[in-house]
Computed example of a mutant assay.
Amino acid sequence: MSRIMVIGSLNMDIVSRVENYPLPGETIKGIKTDVNPGGKGANQAVAIARAGGNVSMVGAIGTDVFGDQLLEALQQENIETNNIIRKEGTSGLAVITVDSKGSNSIILLEGANGLLSMDDLTDILPEAIKDPANIFLLQNEVPWETTKNIIESLSASNASIYLNPAPAQHIPTEIISKLTGIFLNEIEATIITGLSVIDQESASAAAEKLIAYGVTEVIITLGEKGSLYRDFREHVYFTPGRKVNAMDTTAAGDTFIGAYLASKQQGYSIEASLEYATAAAALTVSREGAQKSIPYQEEILQFLT
Score class of each variant (00 low, 15 high):
residue 236 V to C: 11
residue 43 N to G: 02
residue 1 M to R: 08
residue 139 Q to C: 07
residue 273 S to K: 06
residue 77 E to V: 15
residue 274 L to K: 02
residue 164 N to D: 15
residue 283 L to P: 00
residue 234 E to P: 05
residue 145 E to A: 14
residue 8 G to I: 08
residue 39 G to H: 01
residue 198 I to V: 13
residue 66 F to H: 09
residue 230 R to M: 15
residue 289 G to D: 00
residue 112 A to P: 05
residue 166 A to W: 03
residue 136 F to P: 01
residue 164 N to T: 07
residue 94 A to H: 03
residue 271 E to T: 12
residue 125 L to S: 11
residue 64 D to F: 03
residue 147 T to K: 05
residue 233 R to A: 12
residue 89 G to W: 11
residue 246 A to R: 08
residue 188 E to R: 06
residue 96 I to Q: 05
residue 30 G to Q: 05
residue 264 K to A: 10
residue 207 A to Y: 00
residue 245 N to A: 15
residue 195 L to A: 11
residue 197 V to D: 00
residue 167 P to K: 06
residue 188 E to K: 08
residue 156 A to Q: 09
residue 79 I to V: 15
residue 13 D to P: 11
residue 188 E to A: 09
residue 221 T to A: 04
residue 11 N to M: 01
residue 305 T to P: 07
residue 143 P to M: 09
residue 279 A to Q: 14
residue 79 I to M: 02
residue 109 L to S: 11
residue 94 A to M: 07
residue 261 L to H: 09
residue 251 A to I: 00
residue 183 F to D: 03
residue 131 D to A: 11
residue 295 P to I: 04
residue 175 I to E: 07
residue 60 A to V: 02
residue 49 A to Y: 00
residue 256 F to W: 06
residue 139 Q to A: 02
residue 242 R to G: 12
residue 172 P to H: 07
residue 203 A to W: 01
residue 115 L to D: 06
residue 52 G to W: 04
residue 273 S to Y: 04
residue 32 K to I: 08
residue 196 S to I: 12
residue 301 L to T: 11
residue 239 T to G: 05
residue 176 I to V: 15
residue 13 D to R: 03
residue 9 S to N: 05
residue 50 R to F: 03
residue 281 A to K: 04
residue 250 T to S: 02
residue 283 L to Y: 01
residue 46 V to K: 05
residue 29 K to F: 10
residue 106 I to K: 11
residue 275 E to H: 13
residue 13 D to N: 14
residue 245 N to F: 13
residue 133 A to T: 12
residue 52 G to A: 09
residue 124 I to W: 04
residue 199 D to W: 04
residue 122 T to V: 13
residue 244 V to W: 02
residue 254 D to I: 02
residue 215 V to C: 11
residue 228 L to D: 01
residue 57 M to V: 06
residue 174 E to P: 10
residue 39 G to I: 01
residue 253 G to M: 05
residue 7 I to R: 00
residue 11 N to H: 03
residue 226 G to A: 09
residue 98 V to C: 01
residue 195 L to N: 10
residue 273 S to C: 06
residue 88 E to H: 13
residue 184 L to V: 10
residue 226 G to W: 07
residue 45 A to F: 01
residue 228 L to E: 01
residue 206 A to N: 01
residue 246 A to Q: 12
residue 295 P to H: 06
residue 235 H to D: 12
residue 77 E to G: 13
residue 272 A to S: 14
residue 191 I to M: 06
residue 41 G to F: 01
residue 233 R to C: 05
residue 182 I to S: 02
residue 231 D to N: 15
residue 49 A to N: 05
residue 125 L to Y: 10
residue 253 G to C: 14
residue 304 L to R: 12
residue 98 V to W: 00
residue 70 L to T: 06
residue 212 A to W: 11
residue 142 V to F: 02
residue 153 S to F: 10
residue 101 K to L: 15
residue 214 G to N: 09
